[in-house]
Amino acid sequence: MRETSAVQALLRLMAWLSPAFPVGGFAYSGGLEAAVQSGHVSSAEALEDWLVTLLRCGSLRNDAVLLAEAYRSVEDDERLRAVTELAAALAGSAERHLEISRQGGAFLAAASAWPGAVPEVLGDGTAYSVAIGAVAASNGVGLAETLSAFLHAAVSQLVSAAIRLGVLGQSRGVTLLSRIEDVIADEAGRAASSSLDDLGSATLIADQMSLRHETQHSRLFLS
């Protein structure tokens, strides 16, 4: 791993997880669009509950666990290959698999501009969370900081999607991000000390919405 100053680490995280970083995150809602159309998420309060559930016991929690495992595996090709395969296998729907693999591949391509080497075992089909974990480790960026930035960016993307879907306005969206800050910090801390034994979810409705979105007739997002 390269040695990286605290300022460099912060700047890299800000760049990699910025909405402007070319991974196409704006095109995906992770099933949220179907949840809005089905009436499961119809207000700022319902959106907050949805996001907290994903963070505590859903896809965002699992993504954080996989990111941490990839981070710790960066110098062990066999272990890193195994977590890459596991992340792909855990995708609960075709759209979910497409989302994580396309974003992961785009992230690896764009992040290669930085001096830290991208592990050779990672390719275009790498899950987004695994790609971020491995690249952060290769660039000497701290795990706790990476997890916090990753979860915050994921939540921010979903809030942005909800704004475009008319669930809430921008001011309420900013307020929601401030309200959910402690949950993000708590879950990042938990993930930093997690293992693959901590994988698991209890978000049946969210999983169903991801599947339902595949056949949704009119939609703004790819997932």
Rank of each mutant, 00 (worst) to 15 (best):
E78A: 15
E78P: 08
E78V: 14
E78S: 13
E78N: 08
R79L: 13
R79H: 07
R79N: 06
R79E: 12
L80W: 01
L80V: 04
R81P: 13
R81L: 15
R81I: 04
A82W: 08
A82Q: 13
A82Y: 06
A82E: 11
V83Q: 14
T84S: 14
T84Q: 12
T84A: 10
T84L: 04
T84D: 14
T84E: 12
T84I: 03
E85Y: 13
E85M: 13
E85I: 10
L86T: 04
L86D: 08
L86S: 09
A87P: 12
A88I: 10
A89Q: 13
A89K: 13
L90M: 14
L90D: 11
A91S: 15
A91T: 07
G92H: 00
S93G: 10
S93C: 09
A94N: 06
A94E: 11
A94K: 08
A94R: 12
E95K: 10
E95Q: 14
E95P: 04
R96N: 11
R96Y: 04
H97M: 03
H97K: 06
H97S: 09
L98K: 08
L98I: 01
L98N: 02
L98F: 11
E99C: 15
E99H: 13
I100G: 01
I100K: 03
S101H: 04
R102Y: 06
R102G: 03
R102Q: 14
R102M: 10
R102C: 07
Q103A: 05
Q103D: 00
Q103F: 01
Q103M: 15
G104S: 02
G104A: 01
G104M: 02
G105K: 00
G105E: 01
A106W: 03
A106I: 03
A106Y: 07
A106G: 10
F107M: 11
F107W: 02
F107N: 13
L108D: 10
L108T: 11
A109D: 08
A109K: 05
A110C: 10
A110F: 10
A111Q: 06
A111V: 12
S112M: 08
S112Q: 11
A113F: 05
A113N: 06
A113M: 08
A113E: 08
A113Y: 03
W114D: 14
W114T: 09
P115N: 09
P115E: 11
P115C: 10
P115I: 05
G116D: 05
G116F: 04
A117K: 05
A117S: 09
A117Y: 00
A117R: 06
V118P: 15
V118I: 15
V118L: 11
V118K: 14
P119G: 07
P119K: 06
P119L: 06
P119D: 08
P119S: 07
E120L: 11
E120S: 13
E120G: 09
E120P: 09
E120D: 14
V121I: 14
L122T: 06
L122F: 05
L122K: 06
L122N: 02
L122M: 04
G123L: 02
G123S: 05
G123R: 04
D124V: 03
D124Q: 07
G125M: 01
G125P: 00
G125K: 03
T126A: 02
T126S: 03
A127K: 00
A127I: 05
Y128W: 11
S129P: 04
S129I: 01
S129L: 00
S129G: 03
S129K: 00
S129E: 12
V130N: 02
V130G: 05
V130Q: 02
A131N: 06
I132D: 09
I132Q: 07
I132T: 15
I132V: 15
